[in-house]
Simulated assay, not measured.
Amino acid sequence: MSLPDDDHATLVARLRRDLMDGYDEEIEMEIEDRSVDEALGLLQASEGERSERLHYFSTLFRLQRELVKLQDWVAGTGQKVVILFEGRDAAGKGGAIKRITQRLNPRVCRTVALPAPNDRERTQWYFQRYVSHLPAAGEMVLFDRSWYNRAGVERVMGFCTEDEGEEFFRSVPEFERMLVRSGIRLIKYWFSITDDEQHLRFLSRLHDPLKQWKLSPMDLESRRRWEDYTKAKEAMLERTHIPEAPWWVVQAVDKKRARLNCIAHLLEQFPYHDIEREEVELPRRERHPDYVRHPVPPEMFVPERF
Rank of each mutant, 00 (worst) to 15 (best):
Arg122Trp: 10
Ile193Gly: 05
Gly92Phe: 05
Arg257Ile: 08
Cys262Phe: 02
Asp7Pro: 09
Glu278Leu: 07
Glu28Ser: 08
Thr111Tyr: 00
Phe175Gln: 06
Arg62Met: 12
Ser192Ala: 15
Arg224Val: 14
Leu114Pro: 02
Phe306Met: 06
Leu19Gln: 05
Val153Thr: 09
Ala232Cys: 04
His241Ile: 15
Lys211Arg: 08
Ile100Arg: 07
Thr161Leu: 07
Gly48Val: 15
Ala96Phe: 08
Val36Met: 04
Ala116Gln: 00
Ile187Val: 08
Asp144Val: 04
Phe175Ser: 09
Glu162Gly: 07
Glu299Val: 13
Leu210Gln: 08
Pro115Phe: 00
Arg305Asp: 10
Asn261Met: 01
Tyr229Trp: 01
Lys231Ala: 11
Ala245Thr: 00
Gly22Gln: 12
Arg287Asn: 08
Ser51Cys: 15
Ile83Leu: 11
Glu30Met: 03
Glu49Asp: 11
Asp219Met: 05
Ser46Lys: 04
Thr59Asp: 04
Val180His: 10
Asp219Tyr: 02
Glu227Asn: 12
Ala75Thr: 10
Arg277Phe: 05
Ser2Phe: 14
Glu286Trp: 06
Lys188Gly: 10
Arg120Glu: 14
Val81Pro: 06
Glu238Ala: 14
Gly48Phe: 10
Leu203Lys: 04
Gly165Leu: 09
Tyr56Met: 13
Arg34Glu: 10
Asp163Trp: 06
Phe61Leu: 07
Ala13Cys: 11
Val156Gly: 13
Tyr291Asp: 13
Glu221Lys: 15
Arg257Phe: 06
Glu304Pro: 05
Ile187Asn: 04
Glu276Trp: 13
Gln124Thr: 09
His199Glu: 07
Glu30Gln: 14
Met140Asn: 01
Leu142Val: 02
Val108Pro: 01
Arg201Ile: 03
Leu19Pro: 05
Pro209Leu: 03
Asn149His: 15
Glu234Leu: 14
Tyr56Gln: 09
Lys80Cys: 05
Arg34Ser: 07
Asp5Glu: 04
Leu114Met: 02
Phe57Met: 06
